[in-house]
Write a protein that binds this DNA or RNA. Structure first.
Lengths: 215, 215
DNA sequence: CACTTGTCCTGTCATGCCGTCAGCTTACCG
DNA sequence: CGGTAAGCTGACGGCATGACAGGACAAGTG
């Protein structure tokens, strides 16, 4: 699908080369979790991987290039997020359950990938189209089915005709993403994580259906 | 209040020094809008300000230090955001108007300060307490009065007793912040800014009151 | 086993930014 | 006008960057 893995100078990477490349990506991932993006240096990644900076540049044009690759893989995995919403019911108790599971799955995904997601978010916010594209791919895996759900309810007359399903779904998805990446912020408001989840689910349910949930 | 402005080596800055310092801050602000945070170099800021890197280090310990100063000033201005919510009604048509004005004011503030807010967001997400504190100060100027509003409605029996006002208000504020910093993302979902606003207001109103707005 | 081929890694180098210091210039004040 | 403190910069060692050429290594061949 993606073709062969190639080095910067055009050669085809063999088994050993791919292993080195992967190790560099893993070490970069770790560094992103432990130090500010701004301070991540090629030389540190290379040292951590037990190799030299020159090797790094054989596989990636620069740090950003490697980050994009990590982000791309994560985006590929994000498709699993779609199952949290696609084809689920938003009516009655089942609807409330859908909302809860969506929030749970979303926060979990964000928690697992928070370091790289931070960088993707920054890149997208700074206007970098490559990062914006990746961000959209991730958010879309939730946003598309969610938009469909709203449109469905709307077709059935259960949601006002003047709402734009994409705007509602997008706003909710963006809320979940932001809440996930700033969970610590909520604790300074005296809101614990366990307490936050049902409230996010509540807002999600309210936004989608326009009604209070039946718990 | 804040005492005298001092250089890194302890001297008191006079009129000329303060002007230079300010010019450096202004130029840094501009650079943050035009290039990725990761690529902002001291030497570029200095050149843009028509001075030398050594001068920069006379007033700031590093780029981050200067960024914190810019962010601090913005946080001071953010208190004006409180007026968007404090003491406003959330009932009936007046409530709907409150929601709209809140969204409007919030997006406007974010638009004006987006570059620095991006960096603050990143710093906070990376766990830097100084940035987290600044971020909280800004969000609190909206979150506190909003929390009060929910608590008020709750006391009057208009909102369910089992909701945590801080969790609801916090989630909504975070949603607004995220929507503001990724407005471009919505356009790839086919949602224009003018269309986004009323939907954010709708979600806000729904979240605060638990009911559909009377328009 | 020697030889070849193609992959893989690193030593080294020019370049450029970082962060600091000594020392020069400028402004203010008695 | 001389003293003092503020303000600025040239220059420097140190480190990261990014490029290259060449050495190390594995695998296949006669």
């Amino acid at each position: 699908m993606t073709g062969q893995v190639r080095t910067v100078d055009g050669r085809v990477a063999g088994r050993r080369g791919q292993a080195t490349r992967q190790k560099l990506l893993d070490c970069l991932s770790e560094m992103l979790s432990s130090s500010p993006y701004r301070d991540v240096k090629v030389i540190d990644v290379a040292r951590k991987a037990g190799t030299s900076p020159a090797t790094f540049y054989q596989y990636f044009p620069d740090v950003e290039g490697a980050v994009l690759e990590i982000a791309d893989r994560m985006a590929a995995e994000s498709s699993s997020l779609a199952e949290l919403t696609a084809g689920r019911s938003w009516v009655g108790k089942a609807g409330w359950q859908t909302a809860q599971e969506l929030v749970d799955g979303f926060l979990e995904f964000w928690r697992k990938n928070d370091a790289i997601l931070r960088v993707v978010d920054l890149g997208a916010a700074e206007g970098d189209k490559r990062f914006a594209k990746i961000r959209m791919k991730i958010l879309n895996s939730v946003n598309s089915p969610l938009t469909d759900s709203v449109a469905d309810l709307q077709a059935k007359g259960k949601v006002d005709k003047d709402v734009n399903p994409a705007a509602i779904a997008g706003s909710l998805v963006v809320m979940l993403a932001a809440a996930a990446s700033h969970q610590k912020g909520f604790s300074s408001w005296g809101v614990k994580q366990a307490e936050l989840k049902p409230h996010l689910a509540l807002l999600t349910y309210l936004g989608i259906t326009g009604k209070k949930p039946v718990k």
